[in-house]
Design a protein around this nucleic acid. Structure first.
Lengths: 229, 229
DNA sequence: ACTAGCAATATTGTTAACAATAAAGTATTT
DNA sequence: AAATACTTTATTGTTAACAATATTGCTAGT
């Protein structure tokens, strides 16, 4: 069951943390469910020590909440928390776009234009398929974040907040997102960056995320996730 | 030695994490020093289990860095990391000020005006003493952050990033900060919030933090901290 | 004298047993 | 029959011993 992606990390604890993160983000461990230490330890074939360390890490990532002498539970997605999280994203990725506009080397800008062309081609080819934000190295947002050159910002967005964001994206399946509109916005942001217009880049990135957040909100309110409370 | 503030938490791990955080922020455990598990365990009178959990938490707070099979080291403050951190603060606290401008109830606004008056009185009384940003409930910034009403933002700023920010503040002693100027800026920010001018509040908060960051940079470059590398 | 390889030591990672707290179930009382 | 107190059970928190890795110090060779 766990032979999906079994990356041998340097330490068991890291390995388990990674696997647990994926399992939670992908919904294999359902929202609100209790994390039983003995059960999971047996399931992953480790002792409770490394498993507990992993749980502490997940708590830091905001994927589980722990209460003393009771245990850990997987968080439950709800509209308010999503809105709060995306407001933070607005602030942080907006700043990332601003920084990128002043620092991004021209060859990387060209790479990004090429990436957007690739996305465009993909959209033209697969007419109806809803163009998922892939989350890999082809993710426009990740590229902008890295281009900010701010190590702390990069770590916060790509390591600490990213898991939760991915969770929201995945569980709502981005049904109503309009991929062509998103791509247009990406292009506008990149144009601003290419022209070294930091103010504009920040503004556009904020609007882009704000719009995504509104769409997600609608999707959540009309889906089972909201009513699962 | 540790009877300074020995808060009995529900669990040993939390307790140790709190004590270690304070010890690092206040410099009792020096920057760059190695965290020896056996040593600290003996010192705090606990076994290595809870201590390790505490270290994992501190890693999440960015106070220590860990490498597998080698151990944990206290971070070393340096100018670049400080600038990166304060850039994030600009984005996040700027957003907090914007949100506060749209949400803050009028009685809390009055409370804050009273607080600033108190700060003013304190400055008038103690002419030369450099008005430390106290970090308690009297801290203007904390009040604005809480007024944002964004639970995720509050947690991030006051629980995850705050320890490191306090560390920078303390280790540079804010020598060159001009408390009267800072107070004027606080008043301007509060005015904007009182008038529900979100854009302005955000702009002013960003400038305020940016200025503090420039001053800190100067202080660090002319102090022993920068040369300790 | 300096470098390279090896042995010894100490530290971290992991495990399993023990203690303490909370949850569940049962019995007893009103 | 319902509610409360108590007992039992299971889970979390903690400890101490064991395994594995990295560092240190020594020896030998050039």
């Amino acid at each position: 069951m766990n032979n999906l992606i079994s990356i041998k990390s340097a330490t068991l604890s890291e390995d388990i943390a990674q696997q647990l993160t994926n399992a939670i983000v992908q919904g294999q461990i359902p929202q609100g469910s209790k994390i039983s230490e003995p059960e999971l330890a047996k399931q992953y074939g480790v002792s409770r020590g490394p498993l507990r360390e992993a749980i502490v890490k997940l708590e830091g990532l905001g994927l589980v909440t722990r209460t003393a002498n009771v245990g850990a539970r997987v968080i439950e997605l709800n509209t308010q928390d999503m809105l709060d999280t995306f407001t933070m994203r607005e602030a942080l990725e907006g700043m990332a776009a601003r920084l990128a506009a002043s620092k991004m080397p021209s060859d990387e800008i060209n790479n990004l234009y090429a990436l957007l062309d690739k996305h465009q081609a993909h959209l033209d080819a697969n007419q109806d398929e809803h163009y998922v934000q892939q989350g890999g190295n082809d993710d426009f947002h990740l590229r902008i974040i890295h281009a900010s050159g701010n190590a702390k910002l990069i770590r916060l967005l790509t390591e600490e907040l990213y898991a939760v964001i991915r969770m929201y994206r995945r569980h709502t399946a981005d049904q109503r997102s309009d991929p062509r509109q998103a791509l247009r916005e990406h292009k506008a942001i990149l144009d601003a960056i290419a022209n070294h217009e930091g103010d504009l880049a920040e503004l556009l990135m904020r609007r882009h995320i704000s719009r995504a957040s509104r769409l997600l909100k609608q999707a959540m309110e009309h889906s089972a996730i909201a009513s699962r409370t």
